[in-house]
């Protein structure tokens, strides 16, 4: 049994024991205790709650399938997807991105001078940057590198940043999601909490939260679209979407999911969406990176 599963087992058993003692302590206290637990859940408790929720919904889907999104749970969609993956539509983006990565800036330096471990560095992001006091995503780090070298920042939803990130994602395949929320800086936890709040807040004229679709109704269909679980939502970006006819970033997808419910989207790579990415990626801790991806 892999270590992560053992740990999860232990956690589950601990929860079980805790529950038993709580029941003994009386109903009044129990109610108070549960309410408190839900309020002050730690990130790890959040991740466990999400994981258990999906395991209960999809008992036959192994954890390592979640990076495949809706295709982990939608058999018909999966057949189409597997056919598409035979000739991946994102391949030209990887090639173009490699060229970008290797082409020096006007000052003669390259991306490698910013990212010494690069190009396969996706699992280092998003991360809390204590000095800047904010969540740094890979897209943001790319533009900080460009600007430090006298180059113009790239747009965040589409355009040249997409091939570059596709190449970096491709080179990161096989790495494990491992978002850390450092305990020595309370602002990091606040950023995580703000992302979590965003996820559960109902928005737009249609009054949905992200969780309404991807947690409460995951596996069900809106029209013909099967709603994917939140776990695995961050492992495979950028994504080539047939609907877009091109590849786009995670924040472009956020924008789309907000627009669909008639909520005015936030700024791509603005504070809200970066914190949202921080929270959402944390939930996928332990899952393997498999970008770039292809979706309907």
């Amino acid at each position: 049994m892999p270590a992560s599963q053992v740990i999860e087992r232990i956690c589950l058993e601990k929860r079980h024991i805790m529950k038993k003692t709580l029941i003994k302590m009386g109903a009044l206290f129990l109610a108070g205790g549960v309410a408190l637990a839900a309020q002050a859940a730690t990130p790890e408790e959040d991740r466990t709650a999400f994981t258990n929720h999906y395991k209960f919904r999809f008992p036959d889907v192994p954890m390592e399938e979640y990076p495949n999104g809706a295709y982990a749970i939608d058999k018909i969609g999966r057949e189409n997807w597997e056919a598409i993956e035979e000739f991946p539509p994102y391949e030209p983006f990887i090639d173009e991105g490699q060229e970008m990565w290797e082409t020096p800036f006007a000052n003669g330096k390259t991306y490698k001078d910013c990212f010494s471990d690069g190009p396969g560095i996706k699992s280092q992001y998003p991360r809390w940057d204590k000095k800047q006091g904010m969540v740094i995503t890979m897209a943001l780090a790319i533009n900080q590198c460009r600007e430090a070298n006298g180059e113009k920042a790239l747009k965040y939803k589409k355009g040249p940043i997409v091939p570059l990130m596709s190449y970096m994602a491709f080179e990161s395949r096989g790495q494990i999601t491992n978002v850390v929320i450092p305990e020595d800086d309370p602002r990091a936890m606040a950023a995580y909490e703000s992302g979590k709040k965003f996820y559960f807040t109902r928005r737009g004229q249609l009054n949905f939260s992200c969780a309404t679709c991807h947690v409460q109704n995951t596996g069900l269909k809106v029209r013909t679209e099967v709603l994917s679980p939140s776990l695995g939502h961050t492992t495979h970006w950028p994504v080539y979407r047939s609907k877009w006819g091109t590849a786009g970033t995670l924040h472009r997808r956020f924008t789309g999911c907000n627009r669909n419910i008639r909520a005015k989207p936030m700024k791509a790579q603005g504070e809200q969406y970066r914190n949202l990415e921080y929270f959402l990626t944390y939930l996928s801790n332990g899952l393997t990176l498999n970008g770039p991806g292809a979706r309907k």
Binding site: N217, L220, K221, V222, R223, T224, E225, L227
Partner: peptide, 16 residues
């Protein structure tokens, strides 16, 4: 309503 409900005579309904 068909986004989420099966209704007789309606095409490609959801099941939320």
């Amino acid at each position: 309503c068909l986004a989420c409900h099966m209704i007789e005579g309606g095409e490609s309904p959801g099941n939320v």
